[in-house]
Design a protein around this nucleic acid. Structure first.
Lengths: 142, 142
DNA sequence: CACAATTAAGTTGTGTGCAATTTAATTTTG
DNA sequence: CAAAATTAAATTGCACACAACTTAATTGTG
């Protein structure tokens, strides 16, 4: 067969694989906080930026309302966030952290270092990877 | 807040993002072949290696039977593969390509170049990325 | 001002991805 | 050889991820 359809020559495949592998390393660590990886990403946005609209969170994480609405309802059920329609524009749903949600950040502080340890890679390797990926993502979005 | 929980400092996030972005570029191209990305990966394995057990495909793609069984049933419904229990060991399900499945490879030949064009990146950038990712995956699996 | 166009979220449906369990077949071991 | 252990798929349940569509609110325009 022609080489360019060989799995080992696909670039897409290592990316897809690494992404799954990394998320699999997060799973047991995040389970202690009762969060999935996507839920953790939403919490990161809220911890960093505070109150945000659904669409603002979606813009940061590249997720649409079809993904976010049920996910945010689960975070609401866990009492980590509140969902409130804006008085000024009833179409907009504003997401804010509860006290419990704010407190969760303390538990999350140790996660990045735990992940790095779990992945068994150096900070430099990760920075290299991040730099190249950021470059390619910029390239793609041109 | 402490910097290491900032979204922009997460390494995991660009990987996850790039993976989704790349798969999103595959989507319209694979739609012409009536395949999803995961189904395409399975077809790549079968085109390259021929008849394979479910668990062999799973080993190549890092997918378990919970993911593969329904996916393979969908490929079977599309008449691209056949699923047969082995006579020598009735636990094992052997996956083989139908004539139609073999023929599909011709339609797939153009995909890698279409993807590269769609992603708007150079072969070198992709090779760089692949090399670093392969290195990190090796590191992780140590 | 009325109506068309746009926007934000939500809903529906499909297809992964993975944990946990089940079922059935095969292999190991006492 | 029979019971226990192992193995391969399948099943069940949950949580994304995204396309396509719907609903409701707001904005733009004649």
């Amino acid at each position: 067969m022609s080489d360019h359809l060989k799995l080992s020559n696909q670039v897409c495949f290592p990316i897809y694989n690494l992404s799954k592998e990394v998320i699999n390393h997060y799973r047991p660590i995040l389970k202690e906080l009762d969060l999935t990886y996507s839920q953790y990403l939403v919490m990161l946005v809220l911890w960093e930026k505070g109150e945000q609209n659904v669409s603002e969170i979606g813009a940061d994480l590249n997720l649409d309302s079809g993904t976010l609405t049920p996910l945010l309802k689960r975070l609401e059920q866990k009492k980590l966030i509140e969902r409130n329609r804006k008085k000024s524009d009833e179409r907009v749903v504003s997401i804010s952290l509860t006290k419990e949600g704010i407190k969760k950040q303390e538990q999350a502080e140790g996660i990045p270092s735990k992940i790095q340890e779990s992945l068994n890679v150096t900070t430099e390797e990760l920075q290299d990877l991040k730099r190249i990926i950021d470059q390619i993502i910029t390239q793609i979005n041109k």
